[in-house]
């Protein structure tokens, strides 16, 4: 079966799509009222975030657009010091999309939501004519209960910077899944909800700032943080975990792993005193086994990387998507 324009008409076909596909997978009681809006339990202070997902291809090693759309929003809430609770999901579907593909995406969203302990509680579906979108786009909005307010303003010189694991895998996996290069590797996207890894860190007083290192990569996160905090940072290249195969592909194409996207890695800034405990806690979780202290916040402006050979390289915001070099 294929998605037809009628599936977005608001009529019988839409109803069938919702009942037979979405509700089948999104088994959350709040959603089943099928009302215009859903009533939720309130919190004293909530965090809200929204993000649209347009990744191509929609299935890639280590994940798919559905897993990404839930993980990404869960992670944005988590790194803001909140516990993710509810998510909405809006779909823009291309006429002609195979139902089997849609179902794979939807079931992957449901699985990821269960894993992350969040409920999908509202949604919308639109169908656009063939060629007007590439298979499907998803927007998710998430709300969570704020437990610990984090901010670049809390960051001070001497604080340590931790990354929760190896960087660059998502970027490489997407590049290779697009068949842009003839390389065979086992690099998989790191796409994963990080709340079970990061929420336990909320108890640390010295936890000051977290961000998931998505587009722009690790370097962009640290540069943005330093600029917001009016401070600088010094990172140590040899402390930054990068898988050997990612390193190899980066060398070959002239990519810099520090600027490649991740979908399951967080940058964490913590006081020096609590860094050891935070690191230990991270490493005790399967998603944080390779967590590492990669540098420190400094008083002078600019973010620098101490390279493996001992040189200093200034890190800047990512200008444009990385492209392979000629030679």
């Amino acid at each position: 079966m294929k998605v037809e324009i009628g599936h977005g008409s608001g009529g019988r076909l839409t109803r069938e799509l919702i009942e037979e596909l979405f509700l089948k997978h999104f088994d959350f009681s709040e959603l089943h009222t099928l009302s215009d809006a859903t009533y939720l339990q309130g919190f004293e202070k909530i965090a809200i975030t929204t993000d649209s997902y347009v990744v191509q291809p929609i299935f890639f090693p280590g994940g798919d657009i559905g897993k990404l759309s839930v993980s990404g929003t869960v992670n944005d809430l988590t790194v803001s010091g909140s516990i993710p609770n509810y998510i909405t999901a809006s779909f823009i579907l291309e006429e002609g999309l195979d139902f089997s593909e849609l179902e794979r995406v939807v079931s992957s969203m449901a699985k990821t939501a269960k894993e992350a302990g969040v409920k999908i509680v509202a949604g919308d579906t639109k169908v656009v004519e063939r060629g007007k979108c590439d298979k499907l786009y998803i927007n998710t909005t998430g709300v969570g209960r704020v437990v610990k307010e984090l901010s670049p303003k809390l960051v001070e010189p001497g604080d340590l910077i931790i990354v929760s694991g190896s960087v660059g895998e998502h970027g490489i996996s997407i590049s290779l899944a697009r068949e842009e290069f003839e390389v065979e590797t086992e690099v998989k996207s790191d796409c994963a909800p990080l709340n079970s890894l990061l929420v336990p860190l909320f108890k640390y007083e010295g936890l000051k700032f977290m961000r998931d290192a998505t587009r722009g990569g690790l370097a962009t996160v640290v540069v943005e943080l330093a600029s917001c905090a009016n401070l600088g940072a010094l990172l140590y290249e040899e402390k930054i975990p990068v898988r050997e195969d990612v390193k190899f592909i980066c060398d070959m194409l002239g990519y810099d792993p520090l600027y490649l996207a991740n979908e399951g890695k967080a940058v964490i800034v913590v006081s020096k005193e609590e860094a050891d405990s935070v690191l230990k806690e991270l490493r005790s979780h399967p998603l944080g086994k390779e967590a590492s202290v990669i540098g420190e916040i400094t008083g002078q402006s600019g973010v620098f990387l101490k390279t493996k050979v001992g040189g200093l390289r200034r890190l800047e915001l990512l200008d444009e998507d990385p492209l392979p070099r000629i030679c």
């Binding site: 101490k306 493996k308 050979v309 001992g310 040189g311 390289r313």
Partner: peptide, 16 residues
């Protein structure tokens, strides 16, 4: 050579 320049800047050789 573009690749030499890449190594020089990437490894921060000028700073050494």
């Amino acid at each position: 050579c573009g690749s030499h320049e890449h190594t020089i800047t990437y490894s921060g050789l000028r700073s050494l």
